[in-house]
């Protein structure tokens, strides 16, 4: 007799647990309008706001005089774990003093190798580089992911000391 009771009790308990599960999913189904969390990405591009600290890509800000803050000290190059940063520098003659001065020629940044670990930004003594919040960098060729961060003809800002 006990076995029979247990048999039926088992069936009812089982059905009850199934019903509780269906209640949960049923709630989300009937409240789908409120509960749906999917964001429709390319459509919401205009309103999409990334967090200010989001690490998208390394950039070098330039001011209106086409001047940046990079002295070419190579601290970031040393700090980078993946060799994504290459600094090609040159000695240019200063027109005023006539002395030769070391400046950057090209700040080469290989985005394809970068892990966005933020170590270069921490290493930079002059705050010349920073992380940008853009992230759409899908391209057909890996070569297109090599950027030269300093703009052509740009100079170091005068107030930046090494």
């Amino acid at each position: 007799m006990n076995a029979i009771v247990r048999y039926f009790a088992g069936i009812f308990k089982g059905l009850k647990t199934l019903a509780t599960g269906m209640k949960v999913t049923g709630y989300y189904f009937s409240h789908a309008r409120k509960e749906i969390i999917t964001q429709q990405y390319p459509e919401n591009r205009d309103t999409l706001q990334m967090f200010e600290r989001f690490r998208g890509i390394v950039t070098m800000p330039h001011d209106e005089n086409n001047e940046h803050r990079c002295t070419g000290c190579s601290a970031c190059e040393v700090a980078c774990p993946n060799g994504s940063i290459e600094i090609l520098w040159q000695r240019l003659e200063d027109p005023e003093t006539g002395k030769k001065k070391k400046t950057i020629d090209k700040f080469v940044y290989h985005y394809s190798m970068c892990t966005l670990c933020n170590l270069c930004i921490l290493a930079c003594p002059t705050d010349a580089i920073k992380m940008d919040q853009t992230f759409e960098y899908a391209v057909y060729d890996r070569k297109e992911l090599t950027f030269i961060l300093n703009k052509p003809g740009s100079k170091v800002r005068a107030d930046v000391k090494e």
Binding site: T25, Y28, F29, A32, E35, I36, I37, T38, Q40
Partner: peptide, 8 residues
């Protein structure tokens, strides 16, 4: 399925 799973 999508509505059950909070998708569109």
């Amino acid at each position: 399925a999508a509505f059950f799973q909070l998708r569109i």
